[in-house]
Amino acid sequence: MIQKIVTSALIAGFGAGLLSALLQFAFVQPILLHAEQFEGGELTHFGALGSSMSDAQHWVFDPGRDLLTIAFSTLIYAGYALMLLAAMVAAEERGHDLTPRAGLVWGVAGFVAVLLAPAFGLAPELPGMAAADVGARQIWWFATVAATGVGLWLVAFGRNWMMWGIAIILLAAPHIIGAPLPDVLTGPAPPELGAEFASRVLGTGLVVWAVLGMIAATLWQNAPDEG
């Protein structure tokens, strides 16, 4: 089983990572590069005249930088794929069919757990944004992902109101406690860029996770059993 699950997950994760890098280059990287001009001080925004959209960046392939993006993107989604498929197979073991359609639902749930729920407290960070201590944010991020993941599992597979009650508490608790936020807001980039960036990260993430879930389920279903 371990060979089948690892192979299926790594192929699905590699494919999803490539898709993620592609979507990043098309939709996210131009905003990131634009924001870095504000972060580095080449552009300033908060004067009387604001800043011109003509300074917006077009993404041009930068091998040194973008090959690393492709490498880390595939690595991250391979890691996510291992975790996602392990959970999917655990559910299958309990009698829930793992069709590609179910994989789509799994992928969207994964998106909610690792991207949407953390982003509800810690919006995807435009370079230069003020933020609280990175260690505190990471702890909150991990705790939120874990609580949301378990919460969604209980929503899907819980059988009574006590389990659903626990699910609601787990899903809500990170946001009632609240993410660590900065004391002083010093972001140098226009809010228009920050808002667009956050939306793009969530939108591209949803597409990648949906595809990841479907590919993982399809590969798992079609992989030969090791016996």
Binding site: Q24, Q29, L32, L122, L126, W141
Partner: peptide
């Protein structure tokens, strides 16, 4: 957060919603 790793993964971390810096 090791510097080399952070720099290499920088763009992906921002673009996939991880806490960065």
């Amino acid at each position: 957060q090791a510097a080399a790793l952070h720099d290499a993964a920088h763009d992906v971390r921002h673009a996939t919603g991880f806490p960065c810096h």
